[in-house]
């Protein structure tokens, strides 16, 4: 019975690539989200908290 549809087995790799691809889209996507949220929060903090990092100070 093995090999009823051999071409499906050949296409298994597309599912494997899809799984790893989705994983990296989610992980890198979340990373980008964090970087952007971090940059925004930094800017707000520097603007609103005087002396703690405003005007280019770190």
């Amino acid at each position: 019975m093995t090999g009823i549809v051999d071409d499906i087995v050949a296409s298994n790799w597309s599912f494997i690539y899809a799984a790893y691809g989705v994983t990296w889209v989610v992980i890198l996507g979340y990373l980008v989200r964090l970087v952007r949220a971090g940059a925004r929060a930094n800017a707000d903090y520097a603007r609103l908290v005087p002396g703690a990092g405003g005007e280019g100070a770190r």
């Binding site: 009823i4 549809v5 087995v9």
Partner: peptide, 9 residues
């Protein structure tokens, strides 16, 4: 129709 690839005895 064709069964899933893992279908067998």
């Amino acid at each position: 129709g064709a069964p899933p690839q893992m279908f067998r005895d």
